[in-house]
Design a protein around this nucleic acid. Structure first.
Lengths: 338, 338
DNA sequence: ATGAAAGCGCTAACAT
DNA sequence: ATGTTAGCGCTTTCAT
């Protein structure tokens, strides 16, 4: 059933070397033999074996995709969408993605993903925040690395970033334009560079109109950006400061959690408080009121990462490049003019 | 940097064959040499190359995962969750998943996924409804096939199925228990075996209490189970029959679309009409009112499929097996006693 | 323009 | 109990 390069060579009456050259469209081969060989290939339904090819060429045609456990499991399909974008872009370029997760508390002495050890990938895309130890361990294998929505050690690696600073800015600006002056901010994991940038964007927008914020306006000590933490953060903020008329949540999950807190406490959205999120996850449109947010093109983020990887693989260029993916304000019903 | 089996052999002072046997934990090797070899392996950080291994053993350590374009792209993360389950189960068993999509209108003459042609997978998991032509083409490669949430040509292939019949039954039973007698049904793609089974479950439950339904109670000619179609179906049903007090939607996306129609037409849920869905997707809890539904364990579905594949790969048994995954009634706020 | 042949890293049959 | 050796299917010099 399965035919090999030998079968093709025989069928076409040439050597295996010639077949190989034809398959790679080498131009030292006369168009006549090319035709012959192509006929044989078609006739025998020949396709080069990945393993054999990989063994000699050291190219596997696979790209590894790494994210942490908790990102993999979080309910909002954020990183999953990024993965899908990567996968899509890979497929149209004849690559496959090997997905794996690592522990969020990965340590220096932990083993690397198997696909690296077994030399089963040509490059690695890392999505979201990962422990530095992982990056350290990865270094020795000098495989091309591309980061998405995270950048360890500023500037050393090619990366696809969300324009978080601008996102934070326009979210806050939107609230300001709606007449709000006492604007709160809630976040999980403020040490995450992306979150920190959103925070900066928030501060910048406020400072521009001469408002200096302080601790009374933020809750940024939640450890993880999930709904329960949003609920908790809104609760803390409410106890801390009753003057707030609008909230910017560092992501939609937090925003949704916060909304739940307000509902439970009979605080009306958007009449009593406006709220805007970040990410634009699927559910925003379905909740009531629908959530104003900053749209992040997740599929594109993943696709861009893969494209960057392809470029690196092709040009063998390792010059770190940073691509900023633009965000967009989406106004829905959770924010209101006062 | 990268060490080969040769390096290990040299380091341990044995032959490569011995190293290979040790790696495969063959018991013809004395525990003494095993120790020596293991030391060398550790020292050199040796890991067998996938490509080399695959070339000779014909085992790639990869499983292909196929679904159609439209399933891949649909907004509700249903098949995505199944994929994640498969992926998880694969990983804990030292396999990787290669994901790919095929056109929903795949034809006999279309090429098969590249991972099959290039002999880069040991088996294939197929999720959701796929064209028969694909299955036909796949046959010739006699790779182990496992289906999830779909079974072509009844009984010929191992498959993981949702207990749709029971799901349809208990959904309808729930409405009956709540006092409803005029119960409508909406579906997309009634030719899909799973959907058809849900429909049967619905009919069974009604017949058991002596209610015979007819065309006036269903809209099953929508071509695809998406929200827009749910909206449309609800609209059609409303025009057709004003006596209906409860709706069973063949999946949540349709239910959500239907809810939107009722909202737009000022029909209150659950006061004027009760509605129950099927699947239990993420958003059900967040919409207002929260959607009663039949819970489908999606991650488990995928994990079970992979487990079945592993069993087949291990035992080389190809006896078709059908595993029914149980479903569960989830009562939320969209259904009400009358 | 094409072919011969070495070798990629591993497994497994066969020797010893 | 361990070693020798022949491939697996391909790419890639190096010859011709």
């Amino acid at each position: 059933m399965k035919s090999t390069i030998k079968d093709v060579a025989q069928e076409a009456g040439v050597s295996v070397a010639t077949v190989s050259l034809v398959v790679h469209d080498n131009d030292r081969i006369s168009s006549d033999t090319k035709k012959k060989v192509h006929r044989a290939i078609k006739l025998l339904n020949y396709h080069p074996s990945r393993s054999a090819r990989g063994l000699v060429s050291k190219k596997t045609g696979n790209i590894g995709f790494i994210l942490t456990d908790d990102h993999f499991l979080r309910t909002e399909p954020f990183y999953t969408r990024i993965f899908l974008g990567t996968e899509f872009q890979a497929r149209t370029n004849e690559y496959y993605i090997l997905l794996t997760t690592i522990a969020s508390d990965y340590k220096k002495e932990d083993p690397l993903p198997r696909f690296i050890l077994e030399q089963n990938v040509d490059g690695i895309i890392i999505a979201g925040k990962v422990p530095c130890d992982l990056v350290e361990n990865l270094k020795e294998y000098n495989l091309p690395l591309v980061f998405v929505d995270f950048l360890p050690f500023k500037g050393q690696y090619p990366t696809i970033q969300i324009d978080n600073l601008k996102g934070g800015y326009i979210a806050t600006e939107h609230l300001i334009n709606y007449g709000h002056r006492n604007i709160g901010f809630i976040a999980g994991d403020i040490k995450h560079p992306s979150i920190y940038e959103r925070f900066q964007g928030y501060k910048n927008a406020l400072e521009e109109i001469g408002i200096r914020t302080n601790d009374k306006f933020y809750v940024i000590d939640e450890d993880y950006p999930a709904r329960a933490n949003g609920y908790e953060a809104a609760s803390k903020l409410y106890k801390r400061n009753r003057n707030i008329t609008a909230i910017f949540a560092a992501n939609d999950a937090l925003a949704i959690g916060a909304m739940q807190f307000y509902k439970d406490n009979d605080i009306k959205i958007p009449d009593d408080i406006s709220i805007i999120g970040f990410d634009d996850v699927e559910v925003d449109l379905l909740i009531d009121p629908s959530l104003s947010t900053i749209h992040v093109p997740k599929i594109e983020l993943g696709a861009e990462a893969m494209q960057l990887m392809l470029n690196i693989l092709k040009n063998n260029s390792t010059t770190a490049k940073k691509i900023l993916v633009p965000v967009e304000l989406i106004v829905r019903k959770s924010t209101k003019k006062i």
